[in-house]
């Protein structure tokens, strides 16, 4: 049995078939719109759009709920502290929460409706610098490896009777395990760089991914952009 995490393939859906360049541009528009709005109803509307896209992309509900839970966990301090420390702070706190949820769900739509290499190739075609694309690709690739190594380390610790507690031994052991992972990660980075140089890498990002645009792709982008602009306008002028 492998302790490596699995990587699900995107389910077939209109969003999976959408040209990744148009999809990335559309989601960038929606995220920018979300970040621009000031009122809570507008932020809630963006969140509703994000959830709608996630459902249209046939992303499993469990994944959507998981992402919502993760974002909520991150914004809990805002949701708790702001209403208690600012007059009429509940509504602004909810606005922050909806914005965070919307952006988190848009990101989920992006990564769960296309293989990552397509999305990264699309980003490169949209003039995102090659260095950023490559760093993202390597980070994604080796995050899974690091996670698998962390799981193996955890299993090795447990098989030797280690149970985390709130004592010095636990903190020391955890520190050593994390330190070991980082040192091994550094050594791996050197080996990966050597392997890349041996295959002629000169810093340029190349990909085989090809794209083909249809009228529906452009229409999808126009619709998403119209929704983003409409909600921002509604937020500003009504």
């Amino acid at each position: 049995m492998s302790l490596a995490p699995t990587h699900p393939s995107p389910p077939d859906s209109p969003l999976a078939r959408w040209d990744s360049r148009w999809k990335l541009a559309a989601i960038a528009f929606l995220v920018a719109g979300t970040a621009c709005v000031r009122s809570t109803p507008a932020a809630a509307a963006f969140f509703a759009v994000a959830v709608g896209l996630a459902l249209l992309g046939r992303i499993p509900r469990r994944a959507i709920l998981g992402r919502v839970g993760l974002v909520l966990f991150a914004v809990v301090p805002v949701l708790v502290v702001v209403p208690l420390t600012v007059d009429d702070g509940l509504v602004p706190a909810l606005g922050v929460g909806f914005r965070a949820l919307a952006i988190g769900t848009f990101a989920l739509v992006l990564v769960r409706t296309a293989p990552l290499h397509r999305t990264l190739a699309a980003a490169h075609r949209l003039r995102v610098p090659g260095v950023l694309v490559q760093v993202t690709q390597l980070a994604h690739r080796y995050t899974f490896l690091l996670a698998a190594e962390a799981r193996r380390t955890r299993t090795a610790l447990r098989t030797r009777g280690f149970r985390p507690r709130t004592d010095a031994h636990t903190y020391r052991t955890t520190g050593q395990a994390v330190g070991g992972l980082l040192v091994r990660g550094g050594e791996r980075a050197d080996r990966v760089a050597a392997a890349m140089r041996c295959r002629g890498f000169d810093g340029t990002f190349h990909t085989l991914t090809a794209f083909r645009t249809t009228a529906a792709d452009g229409l999808g982008f126009a619709l998403a952009a119209a929704v983003a602009v409409g909600l921002v306008a509604a937020d500003r002028y009504f």
């Binding site: 390597l138 690739r141 990966v192």
Partner: peptide, 11 residues
């Protein structure tokens, strides 16, 4: 794992 650094096998 040191050598397979791309996001897909073909790439």
């Amino acid at each position: 794992d040191d050598q397979l650094f791309s996001a897909s096998v073909l790439d």
